[in-house]
Computed example of a mutant assay.
Amino acid sequence: MTATAPTAPGKLGDALEPAVIQRYLGDLDEWIRDRRIELDNVDQTAVSAGRGNEIGSDMALALALWKAISDRYQLVFATWDGGRVLQQERERISALVWGRLDGAAEMPGGLAVSMPEACRLCDALTGQLQARLELAPDALASAGRISALRAQLERIRDQVGLEPVNTRDAAVQRLAEMMLRLDSISARAERGADVGGLLAPLEVDATTFERDLIVGNARRRDARDQILSTRELRTDLEQRAAALQKLAATCVATVDPAPRYAVPEVDALGPVPVTEDAIGPYRERLDRVSQAMELAQHKYSDALNEHTELVALLDAYVAKAREIGLADHPDLADSEKSARAMLDRRPCPVVIARQLIATYQTWLQKESASR
């Protein structure tokens, strides 16, 4: 494998320096182009050798990763805009680099990873595919493969440190076993033994382990994000429910007939769960509550807006009558008085108020035509 993803600069929330962004974009663009060539080469070789089905799932995942990274690169490059970036744009670029890849939704299990994680995973998968097909440029150079494995195990060590307490010991044990295997292979290679048959299984095991760790960490992070966002949504719904109660009371006191929609009780849903299995259904219930609130809000707002529009309509007719000198006409004045009295009543019978305004309009049309 000749292409290795560049190290992503900064962290989420940083306002990256323009020179750092430019260098990273150049390196990433080169990596994306080289990686596509490598993946195409792997695919063509596998098909020619009749081994397409053997590597199909890993090849699909590698291509999905490459596509997600390429799509995100296009967004970062557009935001970069040739270097015309202020602090807001530089922070946005950091968020695009370190945020979750939306384009990764096509990967198995809806895997959500950051671009640096996706790059590392794509490197590991491509190296594994090349080794399985004996395409890697250093596939026969044991020293190079041993060096690459040591670097991979160091990356795995960093990932193991992110494991939760209940699974970390098992991950540490698995990593230790792989390091012992590598030390044994390295010692045999130094004595001149052919270790090609021992390296390939360890490469596959290390790549699988690294992939599992990255995927597991991404899913845990996604679960944490879901819990946090669900808590924020619940808090927002509680605030909306209180405001909706006031809106409903105002509407019922202002117009007749008024809509009659119950304001959902957010407390009835119980506390936000903290398990991955329960958070999804709970979020769906919150979404249904949000939709019910939105419907009720629209109905109450529409009823109040209708009353406001009737007042504005009467004002417009009166202004027109005043403009042509008919505002003080006895019939028009009495009609306006009746309409305003009805609009001021609480609750206001909207149907009757509308009829009285129509009566004022009719008087205005009649007197205007007779002049």
Results as ranks from 00 to 15, higher is better:
Thr7Gln: 07
Pro18Ser: 06
Ile21Lys: 04
Gln22Ala: 15
Gly26Ala: 07
Glu30Phe: 11
Trp31Gln: 02
Arg36Thr: 12
Gly56Asp: 07
Met59Leu: 15
Ala62Asn: 03
Ala64His: 10
Ala64Asp: 11
Ala68Asp: 01
Ala78Thr: 07
Trp80Gly: 01
Glu89Gly: 01
Glu91Val: 14
Ser94His: 00
Ser94Ile: 00
Trp98Lys: 11
Asp102Ser: 12
Glu106Ala: 10
Met115Cys: 02
Cys122Trp: 03
Leu125Asp: 00
Leu135Asn: 00
Ala143Asp: 14
Gln152Ala: 11
Leu162Cys: 11
Leu162Pro: 10
Val172Cys: 05
Glu177Thr: 15
Met179Arg: 15
Val195Gln: 04
Leu199Trp: 01
Phe209Val: 05
Asp212Asn: 13
Ile214His: 00
Ile214Phe: 04
Arg220Lys: 00
Ser229His: 06
Ala242Thr: 15
Ala243Ile: 07
Thr250Val: 15
Val252Phe: 05
Thr254Gln: 09
Pro259Val: 13
Ile279Ala: 05
Tyr282Ser: 02
Asp287Met: 06
Val289Phe: 01
His307Ile: 03
His307Gln: 08
Leu314Pro: 03
Ile324Arg: 13
Lys337Met: 14
Ala341Asp: 07
Pro347Glu: 08
Cys348His: 14
Pro349Ile: 06
Val350Leu: 12
Tyr360Val: 00
Gln365Tyr: 05
Lys366Asp: 07
Ser368Thr: 08
Ala369Tyr: 04
